[in-house]
Every structure is written in C-alpha cells, then in structure tokens.
C-alpha cells in the first residue's frame, strides 16, 4: 500500500460532536466467507464518503449492517450516538426515521402508485399528520427530484432513471440526517448517472445531510465524494480524497481510476 496515502479514516479533524456514524472493528461472516474484517469507519455531519471496492467486497453488507438489516458478528456501529446491534426493534425504528436508504434495486412497491410509495414511510407519523401535510411533503419530495407529474403513475410505467429519482424522493420524505446510497447509478446510462450523482450533491447541500455512497462508478464517485474509503478484502485499505487517490501508483487503487 502506498504509505503516503494511507491516511486513516478516523484522523478527521472535525469535532467529535459532529460524528454521526462511527464503526469500530466490524466483523461479518456468512459461513466460511469472512466479508468484513476489522473494518473501521467514521462519518461526520455534512460529509459525503464513498465506499469504493470491487463487486463482492462487502460494500452492500456494510450499509445493511449500518441500517440494522444485518447484524455484525463483532464490533460496534454507532449511528447518531446509538450502537445499532444493541437496539431493540422499536429503538431501531426510531433511528431508521433519521437514516434514509436508497436501495440498489430502488425497491419501489410495485403494487402502489408513486404517491402511495412516497406516503408509505410517513405511516409511522400518520396520526400526527393531516392529509394536507402529507400531500405537501409528497409534493416537496417529488419537486426535489423534478418528477411531480408522475404522482399517480405506477412504478412499472417509469424509466430506470425516473424510478431511481422516485426512490430518492421516498428516501428524502422523512428528511433524514444520514442517507445511505447503495450503488445509486448502477444500470443507468452515463447521462442519467451524472444527473443522479448531481442530484445526490444537491440533496446533500439543501438538507445538510451526511452521506455514505457505495459505488464503483468512478464518474459518480468523482461528483459526490468528499472522501473515498477503499474496501479491499473486507477491510479499509485506504482513505483519501479523489484527487489524491487518482495519483496513486498502487495497482489496487489505480485500477479503479483507469
């Protein structure tokens, strides 16, 4: 590994009170397959970190552990001050309201219209909100992604890029403090991919969110990353800015930038 670039992710100069995600010594295995090994990671408020790695390197497993969809074998995952593996279902739900997740497959509910898809995360707050409030939140979220006209359409009637935008709108509707993006540009053409990447940056600026973006689309990485954490063999290999990593002669790093 190129030592001059081996800046640890936890050497961030930001104030610790701004720390929104802190992962220490994370381990996760599936049978004999050790996917994550002693993984460490920190995300500060307003930051956008891209986790870069080959397919099958454990990137999606990492974000699923952060949101509590998978339980780690060892280690701690502090999200907004709470250790995710220690939380019960209700406590986890309260944290999940503050953490948005954009799925790789979009995960839009096929049997529901765009409006119903966007209203779904508001169900927890249904009693506190009247119909007008819900409607204005739905319209605001759709406005953020520029797709107000699709409100009564079914997901099957939308293009891949539109579905990704609607999925992002659904993620935004609860105005989360942290957004996890699992390969947000996979399967999209370069133009749409750039549009989605720009949208991620716009959303981050508008709502001052912190983001963890899982990707190996270097165009997307270049646009959204404040910092890149490289995941190699299940552990954090290096952490630095796009510009610095681009200069690296380490084959494991430079192969991504060709």
């Amino acid at each position: 590994m190129n030592t001059e670039l081996s800046i640890q992710n936890d050497s961030n100069s930001s104030n610790t009170s701004d720390l929104v995600v802190c992962i220490r010594n994370l381990e996760k295995s599936f049978g004999e397959n050790h996917v994550l090994k002693n993984f460490n990671f920190k995300l500060y408020k307003g930051e956008s970190i891209v986790v870069l790695g080959k397919s099958g390197s454990g990137k999606s497993v990492l974000v699923k552990c952060i949101i509590g969809l998978l339980y780690p074998d060892a280690g701690t995952i502090q999200v907004l001050g709470k250790n995710i593996p220690d939380l019960n279902h209700d406590e986890l739900d309260r944290i999940r309201v503050k953490v948005g997740f954009l799925f790789q497959s979009n995960a839009l509910y096929d049997s529901m219209t765009v409006r119903e898809n966007l209203e779904f995360p508001l169900r927890r707050h249904w009693i506190k909100m009247d119909k007008e409030e819900v409607n204005s939140l739905v319209m605001e979220a759709l406005g953020n992604v520029g797709l107000e006209e699709t409100i009564d359409m079914m997901p099957s009637e939308l293009s891949g890029g539109m579905r990704k935008r609607i999925a992002l709108a659904r993620t935004l509707i609860l105005k989360p403090e942290i957004i996890l993006y699992d390969e947000p540009t996979t399967g999209l053409d370069p133009i749409t991919s750039t549009e989605i990447s720009n949208l991620i940056v716009d959303v981050q600026k508008k709502y001052n969110t912190s983001s963890i973006v899982i990707s190996h689309d270097m165009n997307c990485v270049k646009i959204v990353a404040n910092k890149i954490v490289m995941l190699v063999d299940g552990t954090n290999y290096i952490s630095d800015t796009y510009k610095e990593l681009q200069k690296s002669k380490d084959i494991k790093i430079s192969s991504f930038f060709k």
Partner: peptide, 20 residues
C-alpha cells in the same frame, strides 16, 4: 408476490421505513 418483494428488496425497504 412476497417472493418477488423479497428478491427486489421491497421487504427490506419496508423494514427500513419503520414498518414491520
């Protein structure tokens, strides 16, 4: 229906949006 919701991560999406 539930099988296709599972493989397209719709069930996970429900879980992360705070619905059981």
């Amino acid at each position: 229906e539930l099988g296709s919701m599972k493989v397209t991560e719709q069930i996970d999406a429900m879980e992360v949006s705070g619905t059981n």
